[in-house]
Write a protein that binds this DNA or RNA. Structure first.
Length: 734
RNA sequence: GGGCGUUUAGCUCAGUUGGUUAGAGCGUCACAUUGACAUUGUGAAGGUCAGAGGUUCAACUCCUCUAACGCCCACCA
């Protein structure tokens, strides 16, 4: 060791690698060295002190990473590297998400460009399998690409434990959860109003509906009441659904209509007779105070219909065209039918007036087409009755009692509000890309059989009949990713679940608090009886200079890899971490990245200077000189800075930690300490020994405290130290 | 209709339980500097901390109200 360091001191200055300026293009080589070292895998770490684990939010395997992912990688890698250097048994488990609906949407766009569609493929024999295979190949190549991107950002995660949401073992965990829910009566299949996207032809959960303000018309329509020889006026935005009307509802307290309850009215398009019912859901003050009830195509109406045992008339097909029950609208799409309805009503004198009306319309969050409420048989997780007590309540309590802490704290309020008002969760999707719901239906009695083992069930669990039809729906992706922390750890290393669950931190964007974090807490507690993670850290979203959200359609997305190539991953990471406090969005600014690229170079040159000086003064890292009292003080100051940075990291204040280290290294170490010691070194007095020792020790501490933030340049410097205690800075003692 | 966040220097943001002349980076200006670094150094200008009121010996920090911007939730046809 000693021999080696001596030899090194004489040769490193000849090494082209240590020339100015710092060359970040060598980052990849450094990453390869780390990966080969095996230290990303906690099993290979030296004696360790406690466990530390982060499960990486699995990026969607349907495209490439964006800067948002870079924020995620940067922040998580800071925590991981810090804790690893602190001597913890540290695991960062990476993964990828098949991202069911989202991926299918991306893939359908691709098909559209190729002049075909999912429906064309599905028409072929074995179409489902063909489409599935195509999307599978598509995600596999994306996944590989994405892994490389994560590597280029410097993520020190354990690739040997990488998971995909469609790994057979993961699927089997998801299936047992489903079966448990089923056996315990917490998941059910029922005809319910669901959010139907006509374009994608699948149902969506309430969270996937995006509400938009739209300018529409409010139509006032007269319904005749023959027995009383009068009319009742109703207001609606959807005259095209009139053939689906099965009643008119008024508020029983409404004096105007009190005596009409129980009477019959004539629906003005197909002229059928419908009852007038009294229901509290009707707002006396809105419109005319009378509401047409179309249970098949409206959520409120569906509830009213149930209360009054009304039939449902579904007039709209799944492809968004009206069927023959709609009478004159058959074959038309919604907008055409609406025009036609107005025309018919006008002719018959049933149309009283039309007002302009501005209201919220539910749309598909992906394609923005209007969501059609439809009654369909679907699978739901009960979160309102039994499930509220058994699934929702424990999740709320775990946060209330502080077992799970959320940063920033104000997000806890948002979490509570959503959880308190949660409704049953529709987990059925009518797409091919996803985990099939493991259910078969009996062709004789119609009952369902849940079968989670391989192959098909032999007979119906209810009547024993042998002819069964397989469910074609797949799970909502979030149902599987909601199980991610335990699903990954239960299926990786032997003791992983025992050692690492609950995990230390769940770090992700605040935009998926409900979609993902809330579901992980609920399902984690439900399945394992334990919280899935102790802390939730919600980072801000990256926006462009005009504070716009980055999106492909706006064309303002930044490819993190382009930035890495230009300025280095270290610089990008710093730029995304500094100024990013939890829950607060961060602005993407190239100048900022440039600034931290400069800092990489500064640090590099500090190291060059210190090591060159050490060399020319015959400094020996094994026989460090005695420090003068003054230098002792400076070293102590440096230690204090490092302690402060540690505290900030432990309190999840990464921005502050990074700034403290940055400021110290540049403006104290380089601008003051080095400048002062330069003179002493030039004089070559008896203080030189102390000076050079001091510089060396501060350099070592500096690269340690910067390593979690800027792993590459610090490691590159460490590798050039005349004497190293460890093979890599990555596993040095903090 | 509820709720949340933000408002501090030209720009982007820090400011942890209230405590001396309010900080950083970038930008601007002046000067310096060819042996660690021009991806540099030294220094300067620049803020009535959104507004109003209140609590306090003391408020950017706590309370109330107002405004602007942004976001989330919500089955009023």
């Amino acid at each position: 060791m000693h021999q080696k360091s001596i030899e090194f001191t004489y040769t490193f200055l000849m090494n082209d690698d240590f020339l100015k300026p710092y060359d970040h293009s060598k980052e990849k080589e450094i990453y390869d060295l780390w990966e080969k070292s095996g230290f990303f895998n906690p099993d290979n770490l030296e004696k360790t002190d406690g466990n530390y684990c982060i499960i990486m939010p699995p990026p969607n395997a349907n495209g490439s990473l964006h800067v948002g992912h870079a924020v995620m990688v940067a922040i998580e890698d800071i925590m991981i590297r810090y804790n690893r250097m602190k001597g913890k048994n540290t695991l960062w488990l990476p993964g990828a998400d098949h991202a069911g609906f989202e991926t299918q949407v991306v893939f359908e766009k691709k098909l559209e460009k190729e002049g075909t569609s999912r429906f064309e493929i599905l028409k072929q024999e074995g179409g489902r399998e063909i489409l599935y295979k195509k999307i599978w190949d598509f995600t596999q190549s994306n996944k590989e690409h994405m892994e490389n991107q994560v590597k280029q950002l410097g993520a020190s995660c354990d690739w040997e434990r990488e998971k995909f949401t469609l790994d057979p073992k993961i699927i089997s965990v998801v299936y047992s959860t489903f079966k448990k829910l089923y056996n315990e009566g917490l998941v059910y299949r029922a005809k319910r109003i669901v959010n139907w996207c006509v374009k994608h032809q699948t149902s969506l959960s309430d969270l996937e509906v995006s509400w938009e303000q739209r300018e529409d018309k409010l139509y006032y329509i007269k319904y005749k009441i023959p027995s009383q020889k009068r009319e009742i006026l109703i207001a609606t935005t959807r005259p095209e659904t009139i053939p689906g009307d099965v009643a008119i509802a008024v508020n029983p307290k409404d004096k105007r209509y009190k005596d009409l309850v129980g009477e019959k009215a004539i629906e003005p398009i197909t002229q059928k007779e419908i009852p007038i019912v009294g229901d509290d859901a009707v707002d006396i003050g809105f419109g005319t105070g009378a509401l047409k009830i179309t249970p098949a195509h409206d959520g409120v109406d569906f509830e009213v219909g149930k209360r009054h045992s009304l039939e449902t008339i579904a007039t709209l097909n799944l492809d968004g065209r009206f069927n023959k029950l709609s009478g004159p609208f058959e074959g038309m799409k919604v907008n055409e039918a609406r025009e036609k309805a107005v025309e018919i009503l006008q002719k018959s004198g049933s149309l009283d007036k039309i007002d302009n009306y501005s209201h919220q319309v539910g749309t598909c969050y992906k394609c923005k087409s209007v969501i059609e409420p439809m009654i369909l048989d679907q699978w739901f997780i009960d979160l309102s009755e039994k499930g509220k007590k058994e699934i929702v309540r424990p999740a709320i309590d775990s946060v209330k009692k502080g077992k799970i802490k959320i940063f920033p704290k104000f997000q806890e309020k948002i979490f509570f509000h959503w959880m308190e008002n949660i409704r049953d969760w529709n987990i059925s999707r009518q797409i091919v890309w996803g985990i099939p719901i493991p259910v078969w239906y009996c062709t004789a009695c119609g009952k369902e059989t849940v079968h989670i083992e391989k192959g098909s069930p032999k007979n119906c669990s209810a009547c024993g009949h042998t002819e069964l039809r397989k469910e074609t729906d797949v799970f909502d992706t979030w149902f599987s990713s909601g199980q991610w922390p335990f699903a990954t750890l239960q299926t990786s290393g032997e003791n992983d679940f025992k050692n690492f669950y609950p995990t230390s931190v769940m770090e992700t964007g605040y935009d998926i608090l409900f979609f993902w974090v809330a579901r992980m807490i609920m399902l984690g507690l439900y399945v394992t009886g334990k919280i899935p993670f102790e802390t939730v850290y919600l980072h801000g979203l990256v926006r462009d200079k005009d504070k716009q959200k980055m999106s492909k359609s706006k064309g303002n997305v930044v490819d993190p890899l382009g930035v890495v190539e230009q300025f280095g991953a270290d610089a990008l990471r710093m730029a995304l971490v500094v100024g990013n406090s939890p829950g607060q969005d961060v602005i993407y600014d190239e100048n900022k990245i440039k600034g931290y690229r400069n800092f990489s170079n500064k640090l590099w040159n500090i190291a060059r200077f210190v090591l060159a000086s050490a060399d020319s003064h015959g400094f020996n890292a094994d026989l460090r000189g005695q420090l003068t009292a003054e230098d002792e003080k400076l070293l102590k100051q440096c230690e204090e800075i490092k302690t402060k940075a540690s505290q900030e990291i432990e309190n999840y204040r990464f921005s502050q930690a990074a700034e403290i280290a940055y400021h110290y290294v540049w403006h104290d170490f380089a601008d003051k300490i080095i400048e002062d010691k330069k003179k002493i070194l030039a004089e070559n007095s008896d203080k030189s020994d102390s000076a050079i020792t001091l510089l060396y020790l501060i350099l070592l501490d500096s690269i340690k405290m910067l390593h979690p933030f800027m792993p590459f340049v610090t490691e590159a410097i460490y590798q050039r130290l005349p004497k190293k205690d460890k093979e890599f800075l990555m596993v040095e003692e903090w």
